[in-house]
Write a protein that binds this DNA or RNA. Structure first.
Lengths: 340, 340
DNA sequence: ATGAATTGTGCAATCGATTGTCTTATTATT
DNA sequence: AATAATAAGACAATCGATTGCACAATTCAT
């Protein structure tokens, strides 16, 4: 009720009969201010209920202590946990976080870039939209030397630091796991091949196949947007063919889910007739029946690491380090691949 | 590479040999500027790659076009979809969104309030932390007339506009559904009773019981923080008692999940021996086996509605309308209660 | 004791956009 | 034709915090 009018440093200055600049320096612990004055200023600030106006400070220093995040959609668990990681570290270091969702659309992503730029964020963490083919809008940041770090869905074309999980290894261990279970005709439902993560999962898969001298059947490798609906189409294509696979490594858990549901509907037994492995360890994968074997990737860790990189660039002005950090993955074995 | 130095309205002014104020007015479509000048200014702005500096504008107008959101945790589906709703509408209306997570802790929630206030948000949407008992920190906003809207987890003590789903009706239809399935000993695992939503779910449950003249057994109504772990404790308590219930209405889906997992482990048949109904329709509830009957509440709708209310207060200065909007719920019948 | 070094503060400009008030140019009115 | 009314734009102050520079006060060295 009383604090209607905001208190500024000048109010503190007036109350102590000193200048605004001294108040500002005292609050920022400037070495040129005596301890006595600092204490007096801080006490008075508390007494008056002073709250610094970030806007004014930002305008003057042209740094906002805010980082922007662009993600496809917040409601996917991997991304929401990445954000939790980002937020946690950012806040600890005194940064705010503004989140924008691209909804996997290039146009929306471009809007996000504009929004974040207009907010004068000090840096940006992004995971590119699935449907984006052009990444020019990111030049808004790069051309102005605003630090940019990508995670998960990264693009070679953009020369920045990146944080990814070891998708290659993920693909490799998923395939090797299925091979160890005695599967011979192993299919892979791969994601859009303009994104590194899906290229790498596929390559890891292929490497394991070659290592174990398993024939690679082109027909068993299909590309998909990895949505729930398209997963159904893939399930149909693979499971209703004349010579169906005995195992499917799906590019993500959503697609694996579609396969499990389809198989259930058609009375195809998992894992006996076809073993299934997913990717991501979405929260639901544990509760499916059969529960889903999957490659775990920690969104939280990825988010934290990306933030660490970004803050390092912002604070130390490290310049374009263009580091790429690869975080480990591990296989979670569950019922969907538990043959014999 | 070229746009290193940011373009300001004064650069535009200089280029056209007019004053900065004219440029500002032209860009804002002020009526006092001729169409010809407006066009010239806008063209030049485009040509120079001008991007308005929100900070400067915010400082002057002391409104940031930003709304703050405080939620317990982003990784819960209900909340992430609420945020999607909030963001969508806010962006459409030209507002940015800053999200803070309280992690269900009072202290963190208080930090969030400070952060949002320091960012000078124009308004705040919040869902209170489970473990908060004191809500004084919200006075930071109310005492300064910063509009505040609560959703989902609301508190009577705070006099603001609110958006909730019809928890009473949710509790009622859940119970009535179980009754219609012939259940007689119906248990309810209720949430913390300082939060309206859980009070209402319980009251709706009780109303249905009374309506159908079913005995209300005090021992069958237990309070829980509704976590995964505590759900297990409740499952144990209820299912291992001498006279176990034939149905359980869990305060949320997480608790229902714990019950299902516990029952599975112990070989207790669902729904034959005990029917289960949850609340929220979390994404996983569809894929459980048995799939979970639950009361659906749309986070997206709640978020959208809350934003609508908030923006209305911000823009029309409607003052403290203290409206409470109740959104509908509906029962999704699945296997976990499909008796006979 | 005198100049030099150090310490503590104040002054005023600045960040970039906005806006109340004033000035000038143009048009309308009688 | 003279005055009023209107339109279009310029000037300068402002939002609140920061900071280079100037200056005063104190301490130190010789």
């Amino acid at each position: 009720m009383k604090n209607e009018n905001n208190v500024t440093i000048h109010d503190i200055a007036k109350a102590l009969n000193i200048s605004g600049s001294t108040v500002s320096r005292a609050l920022n612990n400037n070495a040129r201010i005596s301890e006595k004055t600092k204490k007096a200023v801080k006490d008075m600030a508390k007494q008056l209920g002073y709250q610094p106006n970030a806007l004014a400070s930002n305008l003057r220093t042209s740094c906002t202590n805010t980082i922007g995040v662009i993600i496809p959609r917040i409601s996917r668990y991997f991304f929401s946990s990445a954000i939790t990681g980002i937020e946690e570290l950012a806040r600890e270091k005194g940064f705010n976080v503004i989140i924008c969702q691209s909804n996997d659309l290039e146009e929306r992503e471009s809007d996000c870039v504009q929004t974040l730029f207009a907010s004068r964020v000090d840096g940006v963490i992004s995971s590119v939209a699935l449907k984006a083919e052009n990444y020019d809008h990111y030049k808004t940041f790069t051309s102005r030397n605003i630090p940019l770090v990508f995670f998960d869905r990264v693009v070679d074309e953009l020369e920045t630091s990146k944080v990814v999980v070891d998708d290659f290894k993920g693909g490799f261990i998923a395939a090797e796991h299925l091979i160890s279970k005695g599967c011979k005709r192993i299919a892979h439902i791969s994601g859009p091949q303009h994104l590194n993560i899906y290229i790498n999962r596929l390559q890891g898969f292929l490497k394991a196949m070659r290592k174990h001298h398993i024939d690679i059947n082109e027909e068993l490798i299909i590309e998909s947007p990895l949505t729930r609906e398209d997963g159904l189409r893939c399930a149909k294509t693979l499971l209703e063919s004349d010579n169906p696979p005995d195992a499917i490594f799906a590019g993500n858990d959503t697609t694996a889910l579609s396969i499990i549901l389809y198989a259930k509907e058609k009375g195809i037994k998992i894992p006996e007739e076809v073993a299934v492995v997913g990717f991501s360890n979405e929260p639901f994968s544990e509760f499916l029946s059969p529960s889903l074997t999957t490659v775990e990737q920690s969104g939280f860790d990825v988010g934290t690491k990306a933030t660490e990189l970004l803050l390092d660039i912002i604070q130390n002005k490290t310049g374009n380090k263009q580091e790429t950090i690869v975080l480990p993955v591990n296989l979670i074995e569950r019922e969907s691949s538990d043959k014999k």
